[in-house]
Amino acid sequence: MTSQPPPPSVQALRSAHLAGEIDAPRTVFAAGLQLHADPALQLSGQWRSPSGRLLELDLRMSGQGEWIGLHLTLDAPDLAAVGWIGFACRSAAPEELLIRPCLRSGTESGFTDTFFDKHLLSTPEPHNHMDALHPATRRELPETAPWRELILFLPRRDCRWHLQDLRPISI
């Protein structure tokens, strides 16, 4: 049995040229950055991380499923001292894509999702997007959680998406 090398960090993904096949239902791009898909989607495709960019996805779905999302692990278990938690990103897509961002918080019985107010729209022209949640006014957002993830829910159809940069924000 051969051991797999550990996945690169997200920072290494930004600075190195890497590529691979989409390995449904879960593809690990870097430590803490993964694509998860409903197995019913029968997801396939390729991914690239050109130097200076985070991730380019070429996704094909031959089935019907309920969800596909890019998951970024966050280091934000306690929001008591956080005024805002969110993200900033830069993206593009050859055809318009509407992406739904979500903050997922672990709970004793599973998880709870808190969706951001704004959808992310990717177009052929690269655009910046920023959004944040105000924990004090979002009752569904647990103040403490054993783990948290930022999830960018993608369309459940064939698509190409260029995520040029993605940065979590907490202030």
Results as ranks from 00 to 15, higher is better:
A136L: 11
P142A: 03
R26N: 02
F116S: 04
H129C: 10
A40G: 00
Q11Y: 04
W84F: 10
V28E: 12
L74P: 06
H71M: 05
L55N: 03
L150P: 00
F87K: 08
P142E: 01
S9K: 01
F29S: 10
A24P: 03
L79S: 05
R100C: 03
S122H: 03
S51D: 09
H71E: 11
A80W: 00
L54D: 03
S51N: 09
Q4A: 14
L13V: 13
W67I: 07
P25R: 04
A145K: 02
H71Y: 12
T73V: 14
S44N: 05
L43T: 12
Q64H: 12
C102P: 01
A30F: 13
D165W: 14
F111D: 03
F115K: 02
G32E: 08
D75Y: 04
A40N: 04
I169R: 08
G69N: 13
V10D: 04
S15Y: 06
A145P: 02
T27C: 05
P6H: 08
P101Y: 04
D23I: 11
N128M: 14
A81Y: 00
G69F: 15
L13T: 11
K118V: 08
A88E: 15
P8E: 12
Q42K: 15
L74S: 10
A12N: 13
T2W: 00
S62V: 11
T114S: 14
T112N: 05
D58N: 12
E95Q: 15
R139Y: 04
Q164S: 04
A37Y: 05
S105T: 07
Q64Y: 07
R138V: 15
W67F: 15
A81K: 04
S170M: 08
L72D: 02
S44M: 05
H134P: 01
A132C: 11
E125Q: 14
E143K: 07
P142K: 03
